[in-house]
Design a binder for these strands. Structure first.
Length: 817
DNA sequence: TTTGGTGTGGTCTGGA
DNA sequence: TCCAGACCACACC
């Protein structure tokens, strides 16, 4: 390290303004001090491609024409000839270097119609990402910086002369603070009544303007003072990271609105500048200069939601699932009432505090994962916490493209995306039809990262398709897709496949190194987060090939991957059968096999792995004591719906109503009890009793409303529904009663008594005052329970009266009335 | 703005 | 009134 250099940890990288090429890099020193590094040495640029047959003279003319071009009073700094690869093939380009980031758009738009220019490239790469990519700067890692510095405003500024990356995995101490607000309706508007603040250094506080007997409550005069005080406290505690749960679209949005009403500026960053909202697609994100605002909701929604079983992504549900703790219960009306009547305010204050406390706890679990995502995808914390799967892999590929001297393909235009979307779907994974009923001793095998390992093994990349070098052998191409005419190069690693290879190999290394680590150590936790981040990226690569918005779109690659996937799983199934085993079920990358012992399983495993090429590997997950495969409407056993139990009595459930949010609690609970009776207790009699009891309870009207609620998402604008389903009706009712239902909202509703269709009787759960027993018996509890019981040969009659009556349940209910 | 295809099942809708 | 097919949501991998 240069003795004059300062070692810094990168928190955020951003462009200072559209008019200047200055990069602002917000950092922390090892001693926990904030530092702003300003780098003025970088310039924005983009490429143009001229027509192939352009002569030398014309090239020169174009170059000088571009050099002299004045747009909006500015000229390019440089126009130089460049050569880069495009999908592996050389292309001749001109690189236009400008001074101001804003000129990228201005110049590229201006020359759009020029006939000498065939194409433009890399003009849509955001300037700060361009900077990070070209300078190999990775957020959440360390750098050594030299340059003149000055101090003031609570942080020092370094005007960078040199910036060098440092190989160091450790993290500095970072301070983090959670913020959460409570609102109350006042006329047309909402008003901020309370804010809670909690950090990871022992600080907690609620600010409000009504008194309550709570020690961490600070009472101020009114809303204006509350907002002012909030800003002071944030600046005083000076956190590096501010975490919220839905702060982008709620807390900061409201804070900002109310500040405006009160004639205040929200100054909570490290400079004197106001809170900003950065446009991201359709929505805005709250951005705080000098700190990083992480809105955990985005990360949960984009990245981890499908690993969760919560019926909605509320802070309550998500924290219950991830950290095992939820919120105190308080309804919106109750909160309003407490405030307006100044009664039970202690409860309200504590309720508000809980939100921030949960957010901090959640952040302690999730931030380490997001940090690693930053490092692997090379994106800022602000961005990495908000990116989707496809965006993460895309920015990683953008970085890799620069390193490989590849041109970054342009994003598809809207029309192109529409064409891609309309294309007929290609064939996906293979599902081996299950055999109905209970099976004892099932070994589960699956491929380790099936699609990434196929991508690597067969070098599946857009530019390795139909290569010149491997296609014309006498016997035909050796690396040919089974059942298709596609083939891929064997000699030269592809760009995308090479990137996936790095991810997978790194992950395997880390996983191996974890074997020797203490599971409670920080090292283990960090490594675990890292391997998880690598997995996220590697798994995103297949879907990205088939995604309409992809820069490296290739249906053929996606098709090839699934074709090989089908080939390998079928090969394994055949092998197992050949060795005398019965295969009970398989889906895409997995298979269930009846076995006698673990030893037998391992023999099969070895036998298979012996013949698998490259990175392909089958893994043995273990043996389940028994597995239940239920029938489908068709009469055959249903795919993707089954339950397993292992020797510890642990149950695994896939696809059944129990794991679906659009079924009522009573139906799911009953189904689960039935399943346990059968799988764990081996007592179908208990199961029948359970169902009868549930039915009786419903008939007597004794079921609590909470257990009757059905959750269904509104996935489109309400007007666009062609079919008016129960959740749509419930949503409409909600709106007519003054509540807001946005696209993406999860509607909670109950089917009530009365006449008309099921939909017409759907009431938002808040308004439902009764329920329709017949519906919950015939359409919820009984079908869910029968799904399990019928796999064992029971019928509805058995449920109703111990097999002695011929009345169907429908009649049974009818008679009772 | 939401990576891909495969599959199940509920409710509605409209024609017989 | 019945029923098939469309529509829709949500699971699996």
């Amino acid at each position: 390290m240069d003795e004059n250099a300062t070692r810094l940890f990168i928190l955020d990288v951003q462009q200072e303004s559209p008019d200047k090429p200055d990069m602002h890099i917000w950092c922390k020193t090892e001693k926990d001090e904030p530092v702003l590094v300003i780098d003025r040495s970088f310039r924005p640029y983009f490429y143009v491609e001229y027509a192939k047959d352009t002569g030398e003279k014309e090239v020169g003319e174009l170059q000088s024409k571009l050099s002299e071009l004045i747009v909006d009073g500015n000229k390019p700094e440089k126009v130089e000839l460049a050569e880069k690869k495009f999908y592996g093939k050389k292309k001749h380009l001109m690189r236009i270097t400008l001074t101001r980031p804003v000129d990228i758009t201005k110049f590229s738009d201006h020359i759009k119609e020029w006939k000498e220019i065939k194409a433009k490239y890399e003009h849509s790469v955001t300037f700060f990402r361009r900077y990070m990519t070209d300078r190999k700067m990775i957020p959440m890692t360390w750098i050594d910086v030299t340059g003149a510095s000055d101090t003031g405003n609570g942080f020092s500024t370094i005007y960078a002369e040199s910036i060098t990356s440092v190989h160091e995995d450790a993290y500095p101490k970072l301070s983090m603070m959670a913020i959460d607000i409570e609102l109350v309706e006042e006329g047309e508007l909402d008003k901020v009544i309370m804010v809670s603040i909690k950090d990871n250094r022992g600080f907690k506080k609620v600010i409000s303007y009504k008194k309550a007997d709570v020690d961490f409550l600070e009472v101020v005069g009114d809303e204006k003072e509350l907002l002012k005080r909030l800003c002071e406290v944030v600046r005083g505690r000076n956190p590096d990271i501010i975490v919220t749960y839905n702060g982008d679209r709620f807390d900061f949005e409201k804070i900002s609105q109310r500040a405006k009403v009160n004639g205040l500026h929200v100054v909570i960053g490290r400079t004197g500048n106001e809170l900003k909202f950065k446009k991201r697609g359709k929505f805005y994100s709250a951005w705080i200069e000098g700190r990083v605002h992480v809105d955990l909701y985005n990360f949960v929604d984009n990245i981890i939601s499908d690993t969760l079983s919560s019926e909605s992504l509320s802070l309550d549900n998500v924290s219950r699932e991830i950290i095992g703790r939820g919120k105190r219960k308080m309804e919106w009306e109750e909160l309003q009432k407490a405030w307006k009547e100044s009664k039970g305010l202690e409860r309200l204050v504590k309720y508000c505090m809980t939100d921030s406390e949960l957010t901090v706890s959640l952040a302690k679990v999730l931030l380490p994962q997001i940090f690693e995502l930053c490092r692997i995808a090379g994106q800022t914390l602000f961005d990495a916490s908000r990116l989707t799967y496809s965006q993460l892999i895309e920015w990683l590929l953008v970085r890799k493209a620069y390193e490989a001297d590849e041109i970054i393909p342009n994003r598809p235009k809207y029309e192109e995306m529409e064409i891609r979307r309309r294309a007929a779907p290609y064939t996906g994974g293979y599902v081996y039809p299950p055999k109905e009923g209970i099976h004892k001793k099932l070994a589960l095998f699956d491929f380790a990262s099936l699609y990434p390992s196929i991508t690597i093994t067969h070098n599946i990349s857009p530019e390795t398709l139909y290569c010149q070098c491997c296609g014309d052998e006498e016997k035909g191409p050796t690396n040919k897709v089974p059942g298709e005419d596609y083939y891929y190069c064997k000699a030269h690693p592809g760009f995308v496949s090479g990137t996936v290879k790095e991810l997978i190999e790194k992950r395997r290394e880390l996983k191996a190194s974890m074997q020797e680590m203490d599971e409670d150590s920080d090292e283990y936790k960090v490594t675990n987060s890292r391997q998880y981040a690598l997995k996220i990226l590697a798994n995103a690569s297949y879907g990205y090939y088939g995604y309409a918005g992809s820069r490296w779109y290739s249906r053929v690659c996606a098709q090839s991957i699934t074709a090989w996937g089908r080939y390998y799983i079928q090969k394994v199934i055949r092998k197992a059968e050949k060795m005398g085993h019965e295969v009970v079920y398989g889906d895409t990358d997995s298979l269930f096999v009846k076995v006698k012992s673990k030893k037998e399983s391992l023999e099969l495993l070895d036998e298979v792995n012996r013949t698998l090429p490259g990175a392909m590997e089958l893994e043995f997950q273990g043996i389940y004591t028994s597995g239940l495969f239920v029938p489908a409407k068709t009469g055959l056993a249903a795919k993707k719906r089954y339950a397993l139990i292992d020797s510890d009595g642990e149950i695994t459930i896939r696809g059944l109503e129990i794991v679906r949010r659009d079924w009522s609690g009573i139906a799911k609970d009953t189904q689960e009890k039935v399943l346990l009776s059968i799988l764990r207790d081996n007592s179908p009699e208990d199961a029948l009793v359970t169902v009868r009891r549930a039915v009786q309870k419903i008939e007597k009207g004794k079921v609590s409303m909470d257990d009757l609620v059905i959750h269904t998402q509104i996935t489109r604008p309400l007007k666009e529904y062609e079919q008016i389903s129960p959740h749509v009706v419930a949503a409409r009712k909600s709106i007519s009663r003054g509540r807001t239902v946005a696209q993406g909202s999860v509607i909670a509703y109950v089917i009530t008594k009365g006449s008309g269709s099921i939909s017409e009787r759907a009431e938002p759960s808040e308004d439902a005052e009764n329920y329709d027993p017949e519906y919950y018996i015939n359409n919820q509890v009984v079908p869910a329970a029968m799904r399990i019981l019928s796999a064992l040969g029971y019928t509805e009659d058995d449920v109703v009266s111990e097999g002695e009556t011929q009345y169907s349940l429908q009649n049974f209910v009818g008679k009772k009335k």
